[in-house]
Design a protein around this nucleic acid. Sequence first.
DNA 1: ATTTATGCAAATCGTTTGCAAACCT
DNA 2: AGGTTTGCAAACGATTTGCATAAAT
Lengths: 144, 144
Amino acid sequence: MVDLHDEIAGKLRGVGQRYTTNRRVIIDVLEAATHPLTIQEILDRRTTLAQSSAYRNLAVLEETGVVHRVVSSDEFARYELAEDLTEHHHHHLICRSCGAVADFTVAPEVELVLAGALEQAAGDNEFSAEDHRLDLVGRCRRCR
Amino acid sequence: MVDLHDEIAGKLRGVGQRYTTNRRVIIDVLEAATHPLTIQEILDRRTTLAQSSAYRNLAVLEETGVVHRVVSSDEFARYELAEDLTEHHHHHLICRSCGAVADFTVAPEVELVLAGALEQAAGDNEFSAEDHRLDLVGRCRRCR
DNA sequence: ATTTATGCAAATCGTTTGCAAACCT
DNA sequence: AGGTTTGCAAACGATTTGCATAAAT
């Protein structure tokens, strides 16, 4: 079994990138979070990190497949660790009112049915599928 | 059976809004399209429409539930007619490279399984679900 | 006559970028 | 040394907004 940071360092090295202090700071923050975080939330948790560095490093981490950008209903991008690092396949509850994002899962049988249907759809449309998003949009507990 | 424009006019009237010329122009463009359109694509198809009017009217139409905003991988918002007007439940193929959005459907049985799983997830999380998004993210034919 | 919509131009604000200093290896 | 990363401040660009005019009721 491989340590999370070793795994990330390896992925970065594979594309000629370094695992710098700031990048590790970002990973630590995302790992501790229970839901995708906005840039501002990341900055609030680590005040030493410059905003521009957060943007630049998140871009690198996203291109490398280490973090995943989540689009919500508001104007803020949110980030979470990539699923192949967390081993936790999940989907998102997106609040239309406040933009908050929470995680949820569905039963494995449902995932199986879904995977089959998506594979067929991709084939039918000559589309090279890399990922899928299954989001529930509505009102979170606090906003409803 | 009700005409599309009558139905939209009624919905707008219901929230104290008028069905103006510009709003009808936007609906006509969206109705003729086979996939969600960006603001720029809408403007290109009707050069008399001012950009600010497009933004303002799309906001009104979205709040009224007449059009639906689709978030892709690029920085441009895309719009389509709401599903309850088109009677055509569908999902989106989103190209990670160029941001293009195409429609696809899955078998009714799959939709049923999905609906059940989502209902349960919403209940488990005290979330008031209004809509779901099932998107396939990858590379379109032209970009792969 | 009043309210609402329009078009233009300017402002907004999350994000991106230029640059010089600090950091690796 | 030779390259990359960093932080600051300035620039960018999709979207929003102020305001005077036009349209709708």
